[in-house]
Design a protein around this nucleic acid. Structure first.
Lengths: 230, 230
DNA sequence: CGAAATCTTGATTGAATTCAATCTAAGTGG
DNA sequence: CCACTTAGATTGAATTCAATCAAGATTTCG
C-alpha cells in the first residue's frame, strides 16, 4: 500500500513559470547555464547578488556558518527550484553544489526591471519568497522542538514529497542531512538504521543514498505534525 | 562604557512607512484599532487571513504547535512591527497578545488592491517579507546549532537592538523565551542567573522582566556570530 | 588494488531536560 | 492591612537524549 501522505510542506516547485516568465521572458533576458562540480561554491554569504539561479540538474545546499565552523543548512534546492533570490544586494547564504549541478542563471536586475512594471511578476516574486518563509517557519519548529527521530522522519517525507519519484534519493551526505536537521551525522545514521530495522524503509542497491519508503503513513507517525487548531 | 553593538539582525522596524503608505493611504482605507487582553488570541493558525496588524502598544507572540503541545514561537512582535501578513488566504501561525496590546488593523484585500497597482507598495511588501525571511534564517542557525548560553545571549542582544531603549524590558515569560529559543524555561532561568552572576547583566527593581545590559560586547562574546566568509 | 571518504555501530560523556522543591511577586478577599 | 492564594521564577538533583569519542565496515575513486 503506497499511500501518499499529504503534508503541510508543499513540494516547493518554484518553477520558472511561477515568475510568470515562461515564453517570451526567456528570450528577452537571455538565460545562460552553468555547470558546477561537486562541492564547489556557487555564491558565498555576503557576496553581491548578481544572479538568481534555477537548478536544472543536480542539487544545491545553502547554509550559514558560525565562526567555529558549526553549519546550519537552511535548505536543499532540487531540480526546478529557484534559489539565490535576494531583496538586498548581497546573498545571505553560501550556496554549494551537493553533486555535479547545472543551473540556469538569470540576471537579478532584469527580474527587478520586469517586476517593477509587471504586477503579475511582482506578485509571483512575493509568493515565492513567502513559500521560502513558510518552509523556514516549519523548519524552525523542527529545529526547536522535534526529537531526532521526528526530524529524520520529517526530512524523508519532505524529500519524498518534493522529488515525487517512487524512491527517495538522497544526493547529500549524512553530514549534510545532519547540518540540515540540527543533529550529528552519527545520530542521523543511527535513526536511519533503526527505521530500516523497523521495516519502515529499505536501502536500495546496497546504496545508502537510495531509499525506498515501505510505509509512509507509519513514517508520518514517527513525525508528529502540528494540529489544526490550538 | 555602553558600547552599542551592531549585529546582523536588524531592528526590524517594519513601520507603516515601509509600505509606502504613510499619509494619504491611511485615510483611504480607514485604519481601525483593537485592544487585546493579555494572553488572548489575535488570530489562529489556519484561520482565514482578513487583516494585517501593526502593534501600537504591547507585544505579540506568533507560534506553531505540535499535537502534544510543544510550542515554537517564531517571532515576537513589538511596538511598530507589522504581523499577520500572508500571501495565501490563511494564517500560518497563531498570534497572541503577550501583554495587553493595542493593534491597528488593516484589511488585507485593500493592501493587495494597492499593491497590484503601485509598484512601490508591492516592492515594500516584498521587502518586508524578505526581512521576515532573513530573521527566520538567522533563527534557524540559532535553533539548529547554538548552545543554550549563545541562544540567550543572542536573544538579549536582539531585544536590546530592537527596543533601542537603555534597558531591555522583557514583557514575555521565561516559558515564552524558552519556546522562542528551543529551550526549557529552567534552562533560560539558569543561563540568565549565570549571566547575572558573571556581571554581564542586572535585574532592575528586583523585577525579572527589566534587565540592564552592563557589558554588551561581553554579552556578544557569549554569542558566537557567523563569520564574514566561509 | 589501495587509499580516502563516507557510513555504521559501540561505548562513554555531557548539556540540557525533567522532576521536585522553594522562593518571590502580585493579587484577592476578609 | 494582612493572611492566603496563585503564577512565575529560581535552584537543586536525577535523568536522558543526543553528542562525542573511537573503532570498524563499506563505498568510491584514482
Amino acid at each position: 500500500m503506497f499511500v501518499r501522505i499529504t503534508t503541510d510542506r508543499r513540494p516547493q516547485p518554484n518553477t520558472l513559470d511561477e515568475f510568470g516568465l515562461a515564453g517570451t521572458f526567456n528570450r528577452i533576458i537571455g538565460l545562460s547555464e552553468f555547470k558546477y562540480r561537486k562541492d564547489t561554491e556557487i555564491f558565498g554569504e555576503k557576496e553581491p547578488a548578481v544572479y538568481v539561479y534555477q537548478v536544472k540538474h543536480g542539487a544545491v545546499r545553502s547554509y550559514k556558518l558560525l565562526s567555529d565552523g558549526r553549519r546550519q543548512i537552511a535548505a536543499f534546492h532540487l531540480v526546478g527550484d529557484i534559489f539565490g533570490i535576494e531583496n538586498g544586494n548581497t546573498h545571505r547564504f553560501t550556496a554549494e553544489a551537493v553533486v555535479e549541478t547545472v543551473a540556469r542563471l538569470i540576471k537579478r536586475e532584469s527580474i527587478q526591471l520586469v517586476a517593477a512594471r509587471d504586477a503579475v511578476v511582482s506578485h509571483n516574486l512575493l509568493s515565492m519568497t513567502t513559500r521560502n518563509l513558510e518552509h523556514a517557519e516549519n523548519h524552525m519548529l523542527l529545529l526547536g522542538r522535534k526529537t531526532a527521530v521526528e526530524r529524520v522522519a520529517a526530512f524523508l517525507l519532505e524529500m519524498d514529497c518534493r522529488t515525487g519519484a517512487d524512491n527517495v534519493s538522497l544526493p547529500m551526505t549524512r553530514r549534510d542531512i545532519a547540518d540540515y536537521l540540527g543533529l550529528t551525522l552519527e545520530t542521523v545514521s543511527r535513526v536511519l538504521s533503526s527505521l530500516r530495522k523497523a521495516g519502515v524503509l529499505t536501502f536500495l542497491d546496497g546504496d545508502q543514498r537510495e531509499i525506498m519508503l515501505n510505509d509512509r503513513s507509519r513514517l508520518a507517525d514517527f513525525d508528529r505534525q502540528e494540529p489544526a487548531r490550538p
